[in-house]
Design a protein around this nucleic acid. Structure first.
Length: 403
DNA sequence: AACTCACGCAACCGCAGACCT
DNA sequence: CAGGTCTGCGGTTGCGTGAGT
């Protein structure tokens, strides 16, 4: 309404910048410095909106910009910062010299976010959501089209960046992916051509999650063969997300779990999803707690420990003896600190972050929560592979954000 | 070889807070 | 203090591209 447009749009050029325009802009800023974006185009002889000039300068022409692939370290930084800061790209960019918020935002949206999740429809109606593990870990399965990043193509001699995503992420009902359409952060996850769209019907290379009105069935028959422990007809809550861990490469299982968990548990995240880990009894069976509380909307179900993976949580036989009911959601949903003390107090153990060493080798007995193997004691199916630092962080987040 | 399709990324848009008058 | 302007930010769009069919 009362607000004048940032510039007179009539007669202004839009779209890609030419080398000539770049030159003009650079020369002008070199001579006059940044700022006064509104008047800059006119003074510099550019038929561009001031905003456009600013964007071009900040995202592309500045001399201090770093070019090339995002390194593994940078990626890690982005993930960590995003966990705590959410989509505040400019703040994240401030921690990555030479990277722009736009670049990080694009990288997140095209590389990282789809590794982590894409589930839960915006309208809240029941329906299947399929998570594609190709997106998560870059499993080399066939894909139809797509291009690799330009920078990756330029440096044909493999860098540290993982292979591009290889499969499609499909939603049974196309459209937005995250619940954030209730207005909030995260909306970009489903932006544009990203896995939205609901195109295609062929099974994804990774995982299938079924549609259903209340009952979700693992469609392993339509996905690649696997030895899922999760029974095919096992009922899951609607919109639960089934992750076929057989599709994960060795050593990626815990990274993926961690990524999922950090996303779900992020204080900035409003999804409220839970992470479930199935044992050979499946999800929701073999324990009273799971029977009471089954995966539901927005939940993530890790359906099995991949073959060959050293599972940090107990083998099935041990799980029968131990109480295997504790799932990650217990942590997410409850006051973390309270939960932590409760769990370990019940088990008569010290909190694992108090002393990993002493409790790590404790034998697994009925009703106890620690593991029989050389792993830090953790709740069954929950927080396996996390460091005490991670847990401390979550506790910190919880205390910070729950107030 | 032609076509399709999904991808990456540059650029655009609208909003909101900071700043100015 | 109010209203206008500027700037920065996050979300979104759409084009160019190249792998797969």
């Amino acid at each position: 309404m009362g607000r004048a447009p940032c510039c007179e749009k009539v007669g202004l050029k839009r779209g890609r910048w030419t080398a000539e325009e770049d030159e003009k802009l650079m020369n002008y800023i070199k001579a006059n410095g940044e700022g006064s974006w509104r008047s800059l185009p006119k003074n510099a002889g550019l038929l561009r909106c001031g905003k456009s000039c600013r964007l071009r300068w900040i995202n592309y022409l500045r001399a201090d910009l770093k070019r090339g692939n995002i390194s593994a370290e940078e990626e890690e930084t982005i993930i960590k910062l995003h966990t705590s800061l959410g989509n505040r790209w400019s703040l994240i960019a401030a921690h990555l010299p030479g990277r722009t918020d736009n670049e990080i935002k694009n990288y997140w949206n095209s590389h990282l976010s789809r590794r982590i999740h894409s589930f839960k429809r915006a309208d809240g109606e029941g329906g299947a959501v399929i998570m594609d593990l190709g997106k998560i870990v870059g499993i080399p399965c066939k894909r139809r089209g797509g291009r690799t990043s330009r920078s990756a193509m330029k440096k044909s001699n493999g860098g540290t960046v993982a292979a591009p995503p290889t499969a499609k992420c499909r939603h049974a009902h196309g459209g937005a992916v995250l619940p954030s359409d209730e207005k909030g952060h995260g909306g970009a996850e489903g932006s544009g051509s990203d896995c939205g769209g609901g195109h295609g019907l062929q099974p994804p290379c990774g995982v299938a999650l079924p549609a259903g009105t209340g009952t979700a069935k693992a469609q392993s028959s339509s996905s690649s063969s696997n030895n899922n422990m999760l029974a095919h007809d096992e009922p899951l809550g609607e919109e639960a997300l089934l992750v076929d861990v057989d599709q994960l490469l060795p050593n990626e299982f815990w990274e993926t779990t961690k990524a999922l968990a950090s996303e779900l548990f992020s204080p900035c995240d409003d999804m409220g999803g839970d992470v479930w880990v199935a044992d050979e009894h499946g999800v929701g069976e073999g324990s009273t707690e799971q029977e009471r509380d089954r995966p539901g909307a927005g939940d993530v179900v890790l359906d099995a420990v991949p073959a060959g993976e050293q599972p940090p949580f107990p083998q099935a036989s041990e799980m029968e003896e131990c109480n295997s009911a504790v799932t990650m959601d217990r942590w997410a949903d409850m006051e973390l600190e309270e939960m932590a003390s409760k769990l370990w107090d019940e088990a008569g153990e010290e909190w694992p972050w108090q002393n990993w060493e002493e409790t790590a080798a404790a034998p697994c007995g009925s009703g106890e929560l620690h593991l029989a193997q050389q792993q830090p004691p953790v709740p069954m199916g929950g927080f396996c592979g996390y460091s005490d630092g991670d847990i401390h962080s979550w506790l910190l987040f919880d205390s910070l954000y729950s107030s």
